[in-house]
Structures are given as C-alpha cells and as structure tokens.
C-alpha cells in the first residue's frame, strides 16, 4: 500500500444473490490522480463502482475498502458520500415528483451547507450554463424526460457542486454524441481544477481520456483485476483489445500485473 492512497481495496470479493462477481480485487488510487478501469463487457467494472459506493444490492463477501484513511467496508452509502466518495451512474435513475433543484438543494443540505436561495440559484444556474445545459432543466423533475446526454450532464453538475474527494465515473461517456462528450470532458477538467479531484474512470472510450493525464490503468476481466500499468496501456488495449487478458485471466493476472 502506498502511504498516500486515497482509496484502497484489498482482496475485495462481492456477490449478488449468491453469485460471485468480484474476486479478490486489489486497487489503489492516490489522491489527485486519474485512474482508468477498463475491461470487456460484463467484466465487473460497474459492479466494482457500485460496491465501492456501498450499493446494498451487492454483498461484500471478503476483503476491505479503505477511503481517506478509514475502513468504509461496512459504511452506508450516504455516509460514504458525505465522506467524499462520488459515483456517476451509467444509467442515472429518474425521480418523478422531485424538481432537480430540490434534489440538489437537499444534497447540499445533507452536507450541512445552507446556501441562501439566491446564492444557490445563481450557483446552480452558472454550473448548468458551464455544462451547456438549459437552466430550465433545473425546474424539471429529476431525469424525467431527459435525454441520455442531459442525464449525464446532470451527473457532472452534481460532481461540480459536491466536489468530492474521489469520483468514480461509470461510463459517463457512453451514448454521448461528440458535443455532449466534449461537455462531459470539460466538466471533468473543471472538477480536477477546482479541488485537485481524484478520478476513477470506467470507460470503453479512450476519447474521453484525451484531455486528461492518466496516471494508472487497471484492466478487469471476469471480476478480477488482471493487469495494471501506465497510460500507455490504453494505447495497447486500443490496438489489441482485451483478448490476451481474456484468454487466461488467472495466468494473465500473474504475468501482467506490473
């Protein structure tokens, strides 16, 4: 373990309805770094994101998760959030009956931040405009009738509002057109600039990484982290795919971890 690891999970295994999905995952993310988690479909990447956030749909069957120096393995997801962990959802849920701005306000008040209304409205409006989002969306029911791109922008808006210590972005780029992708990339940059934020990006698309200095890449296959490496690993995977990791994940895990 490096001394400055903000997130560390060791020997992490998880299951859903008694079906094992993650197997002894080891992962460390240092403060201020950008890590990328790659892998073929069904590798368990999103599951890892949800397990790190404390999704009760999954059961941690072994291992531990440390965040910012504390063991959060058993911590409720709302407390993990307030501790500074953030998960951007691949498919953000809709919350009918709750205006987006009400939700954002409740989110901030949950952190003890009582912004005056004018200030809050100004701040959310500015963030919406920064993300090329029509501020009218702030008065609409959360996610209801939003396009895929708008939903992802709302995720980025929350990221910028909360400025968490570590953000896990679960395929935030999926299903986005070029313009929306550019907006999301811009949001990530702003987050990094605003608070020296730490990112764990789950993606298939290397395009979203173009404007980021990636520190470390992790490759997950069949619920295991089978390889780790510097940013150059992205180019290797881009050229060769995951075949060599999928062939024998257990063996690859031995040889490819470096």
């Amino acid at each position: 373990m490096t001394s400055d690891a903000l997130l560390r999970c060791r020997g992490l295994s998880a299951a859903v309805e008694e079906k094992a999905i993650l197997h002894e995952v080891n992962l460390e993310v240092a403060q201020g770094q950008v890590h990328v988690l790659m892998g073929p479909n069904g590798a368990g990447k999103s599951t890892l994101g949800h397990v790190l956030m404390g999704d009760p749909a999954y059961e941690v069957t072994a291992g531990e998760i440390f965040f910012d120096g504390a063991d959060i393995t058993e911590l409720a997801p709302d407390k993990r959030s307030r501790a500074g962990l953030f998960l951007s959802f691949q498919a953000p849920v809709e919350i009918p009956g709750v205006p987006l701005r009400s939700f954002l306000r409740a989110m901030m008040e949950g952190r003890g931040e009582k912004l005056k209304n004018k200030e809050f409205r100004r701040k959310t409006q500015e963030l919406a405009e920064t993300l090329d989002m029509d501020p009218a969306y702030l008065d609409r029911e959360l996610g209801v009738g939003f396009s895929g791109g708008e939903k992802k922008k709302v995720e980025m808006l929350q990221l910028l509002l909360l400025q968490p210590k570590l953000a896990i972005l679960d395929e935030t780029d999926s299903g986005l057109d070029v313009d929306a992708l550019s907006v999301v990339s811009h949001g990530m940059e702003l987050y990094r600039e605003a608070c020296d934020g730490t990112l764990l990006i789950i993606t298939h698309n290397t395009r979203i990484l173009e404007h980021l200095n990636v520190d470390r890449v992790h490759v997950m296959v069949a619920g295991r982290v089978v390889a780790e490496g510097p940013a150059t690993l992205i180019d290797e995977i881009d050229a060769q795919g995951f075949e060599r990791y999928e062939a024998a994940p257990a063996d690859a895990a031995e040889s490819a971890l470096r």
Partner: peptide, 27 residues
Amino acid sequence: EQLFYLASRGLSQAAAEAMFASAIVEQ
C-alpha cells in the same frame, strides 16, 4: 435503486423521504 441513487448523493432514507414531501410543495 432510487434510494441508492439518493444515498450516493449523501441522502439518508429519512432525508430522502422528507425531500419527496417538500418537493410536492416546491413543485
């Protein structure tokens, strides 16, 4: 899944339920 989403933003179940009630008035 809604509860988890709200929890991932720091809202406990009690806070989420209070938000739903006040949201009707706000809307």
